Simulated assay, not measured.
Amino acid sequence: MLSKRLILWIAAIFLGISILMLYTEYRTKDLLHDFLPNKDLEEILNKMAIWEVDNGTNKTLAIINRDDPRLDDMRLALSTWEVKRTLLNNKQADVVYQLDITYYDNTLKILFFQNGLLAIDGQTYKLVNGETLDEILKAIH
């Protein structure tokens, strides 16, 4: 039979690993740094598209390619965005906008919900510093 001291050590190690895993999952993340392989969009970007979603139909608001002059404005707006994972569920909210960032052969899809939450890679996030999609919409017009 294992001694109490060994069981306590094993429990402490398991608890420490669990806390570390939860911290890395739910900490504040920088949108460009943590979700894209390189935060310099000029190097990796193929295309960026913003869609307005209305009753299942998509309306293209903007398509920004690598040589588009609006890319710098988009990069500046996105560079300040920090997101934090939330336990709230977004399944009840309707998607309002979708931002697709195509880099290399991949596409990062960011869904903006009516309730203010975001979905990135199937996980629910909220913007930390009060940023809104309005900054992006101003940058493209």
Rank of each mutant, 00 (worst) to 15 (best):
K39S: 10
D40I: 00
A62Q: 01
I140W: 00
L2C: 04
L41P: 01
H33S: 05
I7E: 07
L15H: 15
K47M: 08
M21L: 12
L108T: 02
D94M: 12
K91W: 09
E25F: 10
T86I: 08
G122A: 13
D34G: 08
T57S: 13
I120C: 09
I120Y: 06
G116A: 11
D100T: 01
T102D: 05
I136R: 05
W9Q: 09
L31Y: 05
F112K: 03
I50P: 06
L20A: 11
L45D: 03
Y23G: 03
K59G: 04
T57H: 15
S18W: 12
G122T: 01
Y26H: 10
R27F: 07
V53T: 10
A62I: 00
E42T: 03
S79E: 07
N90M: 02
L41Y: 00
L99V: 05
K109T: 12
G130T: 13
L117W: 00
R27E: 12
Y125F: 13
I140A: 03
M21K: 12
V128A: 08
P37D: 10
R5E: 05
A49N: 13
T132K: 04
I17Y: 13
I50L: 07
L61T: 08
L108Y: 06
L87K: 04
D100V: 01
A49L: 08
I7Q: 05
K84A: 09
L15M: 14
K138R: 09
L6Q: 10
L20D: 03
L71H: 00
L117C: 04
L36W: 14
I110K: 00
N89Q: 13
D30F: 04
A93F: 12
R75A: 11
Y23I: 00
Y23S: 04
L78I: 07
I64V: 09
N65H: 11
R70D: 00
G56S: 04
N55K: 14
